[in-house]
């Protein structure tokens, strides 16, 4: 019997892997992918709880989260493009001009 908890654990694991990657990787593009992982983890939990409670609000939320993700990727990637053109690197540790 698969319970909601199973799906929640799966969502949490996905989210956690996203966090792990975000903390460990240095490539900006990969960091963006990790953010996608986190959003998907949260989405799985949303949809699982949605089925649990029988309301559609959670699904609507996931839909909006997808919109946000798309926006974020579009703007984020174009920023990365710009950065790479100017600095010739994608290493976050080297992008620390915005100190103070």
């Amino acid at each position: 019997m698969v319970t909601t908890s199973h799906y929640l654990i799966l969502g949490s694991a996905l989210f956690g892997i996203g966090v792990l990657g975000f903390l460990m990787k240095r490539n900006v593009i990969v960091l963006l992918m990790c953010v996608e992982l986190m959003i998907n983890g949260a989405g799985v939990s949303f949809v699982a709880l949605c089925r649990q409670t029988g309301s559609l609000e959670g699904q609507v939320f996931v839909l909006f989260a997808m919109v946000i993700a798309a926006v974020e990727i579009a703007v984020g990637l174009s920023l990365i493009l710009l950065i790479f053109r100017n600095r010739a690197t994608l290493d976050v540790d080297k992008l620390e001009v915005l100190k103070w």
Binding site: S5, F15, L20, L23, R51, S55
Partner: peptide, 27 residues
């Protein structure tokens, strides 16, 4: 980051497994 994130994942999974749930709705 690995250390913190692993601890974080542990906590997340713990909370997912133990959360109190409402009665499952008929769809």
């Amino acid at each position: 980051g690995l250390l913190v994130a692993l601890f974080f994942i542990f906590e997340l999974i713990l909370s997912s497994a133990t959360g109190p749930f409402v009665e499952e709705a008929t769809l």
